[in-house]
Design a protein around this nucleic acid. Structure first.
Length: 455
RNA sequence: UCCCCGGUAGCUCAAUCGGCAGAGCGGUUGGCUGUUAACCAAUAGGUUCGGUGUUCGAGUCACCGCCGGGGAGCCA
């Protein structure tokens, strides 16, 4: 008989005479003459309850079946006389697939701390919370692809290995095939030059956008920064759309639409999983998500943000003068206290932003924009790109960067340049936003961070 | 990397002034029961993160290190 997934079995409209389910035992309760087995196969949050009548054979089997064991149950899907579930499986046969020793199996039938579960990341997807998390994670990835496909964006694969530290986004991991114990130069290495893991797919995305029109990348990104915070990991996933013939307003419109779209999609498709987080992780989650969907995001120029901060009734540790980058405390004040909803800050001083961002007519600011979300902070960072060859060359010079290294980048401004814009969206930070989980290490199955490379 | 807090049973935590190392949950055993993180009873379970030191005596005090959490920086 073909196995049916538990999520589908629980959705049945009528009783089913013959059904086969397989899953892991979440809990076993013994009654007089029979036992209850609650099974979960990961297909959904809800367990299915199986009723196993005691016979000499099943009693022997049930001895070695406890929390964590994997089993197969064949029987009939029947209306449950008990409270709490519509359907249950009346077992005709029970098979033990893999036992779990009750003394050493680390997952108990009770709540565990996130810190402990992180030490058993290989097993935590068997808990309600992490099962829900990784189902939401999967749905979010699909939601992002659908959002862009519906708008005619092409999904491109930007390289993960990159040749030089010219991506301008922080410390990089070096990739080498050389033996640490033997001396050798970069010339002798695999690529004949230094190689690194990418910190951004943006430059590639720009090149492709200036040929395909609208594109996006969605891939792993690596930062070798020694960041020890609940918001940073060394390996994370980033979504980077890039649009030709677009300006900063188009960019902000796209970012806002994307966040709104994926939020409603998750609430629609993974409602029960999100509900778990709303119930046990952050009781204000639903209100916040409704606000994100319904309310237009606030949009203010950087100068206005500075003015708001200066007029704030509270004081800040860091200065709030024109030219200062916005600190975490400033971003949180704007999103959480002042606007109480997502806010897009744009037109930043050129000094605090990257060389490729388009210089505004005031010669002081660039067409950059950050989307700040309550509780999370920066979730999107983007800009209109500098499309004017002379201005771009001057900016590269001002920042003492190498013209030669960017020859191909500059070529696109040399031949048929067009205004274009894009941004980077932190995939894990969206998951934190959607679930209320406050540590980024708990939204990715196997987090990589300084001094942490297990599993 | 900097600042603050923590590390005690499988898990979550307690232990007064430096004086016999405990509880709840989980496990095991037995009982009860169409049960819902079932219930009742009994029971086992310890290198108090590691090292060095102070002391008659250290879970407790000092120093060094490791690990975890929170805040900051860097950033998505």
């Amino acid at each position: 008989m073909k196995r049916i997934k538990i999520a589908n079995a629980l959705n049945a409209l009528a009783p089913v005479e013959d059904i086969l389910i397989k899953g892991w035992v979440r809990t076993k309760r013994d009654a007089k003459g029979f036992s209850f087995l609650e099974l979960n196969d990961g297909s959904g949050l809800k367990n299915i309850q199986a009723i196993v009548d005691h016979t000499p054979e099943t009693l022997a089997l049930l001895e070695s079946i406890g929390t964590g064991a994997s089993v197969a149950v064949e029987g009939s899907l029947s209306a449950s006389p008990g409270q709490g579930q519509k359907w249950e499986v009346k077992a005709r046969s029970l098979t033990l697939i893999g036992a779990a020793d009750q003394v050493t199996y680390p997952l108990q039938k009770k709540r565990h701390s996130d810190e402990f579960l992180r030490t058993i990341a290989h097993l935590r997807s068997r808990t309600n919370k992490y099962g829900a998390m990784f189902r939401i994670r999967s749905e979010l990835a699909l939601a992002i692809h659908d959002f862009f496909q519906e708008r005619g964006f092409f999904h491109i694969h930007s390289p993960i290995l990159t040749g030089a530290d010219c991506e301008g986004a922080g410390e990089m991991f070096r990739v080498t095939t050389q033996d640490r114990a033997k001396p050798g130069t970069a010339m002798d290495d695999f690529f004949g030059k230094d190689a690194f893991l990418t910190v951004s797919g943006q430059l590639s995305a720009e090149m492709l956008a200036l040929g395909l029109g609208d594109v996006y990348t969605f891939g792993p990104t690596f930062r070798a920064e020694n960041s020890n915070t609940p918001r940073h990991v060394a390996e994370f996933w980033m979504v980077e759309p890039e649009m030709a013939f677009a300006d900063l307003t188009d960019d902000m419109d796209l970012g806002e639409a994307l966040i709104k779209s994926v939020t409603s999609r998750i609430l629609d498709r993974r409602a029960d999983d999100v509900e778990l987080f709303a119930k046990f992780v952050d009781t204000t989650l639903m209100v916040g998500l409704e606000t994100i969907i319904k309310e237009p995001f606030a949009r203010i120029p950087y100068r206005e943000a500075i003015r708001i901060l200066q007029e704030a009734s509270r004081s800040f540790e860091f200065p709030t003068e024109f030219g200062c980058d916005l600190q975490t405390e400033h971003e949180r004040y704007l999103a959480e206290e002042h606007f109480k909803k997502p806010v897009i800050v744009f037109d930043y001083p050129k000094e605090v932003k990257a060389f490729y961002m388009r210089l505004n007519d005031d010669n002081e600011t660039v067409a950059a924009m950050d989307v700040l979300v309550p509780r999370i902070g920066e979730i999107i960072g983007g800009s209109q790109r500098e499309e004017r060859l002379e201005v771009l060359e001057r900016r590269i010079q001002e920042l003492s960067l190498s013209q030669e290294a960017y020859w191909w980048y500059l070529d696109t401004r040399r031949f048929g340049t067009v205004p274009h814009a894009g941004f980077g969206l932190g995939f894990e930070r969206v998951l934190m936003m959607l679930t209320g989980v406050t540590n980024i290490r708990d939204v990715i199955p196997f987090p990589r961070a300084p001094k942490s490379l297990d599993f």
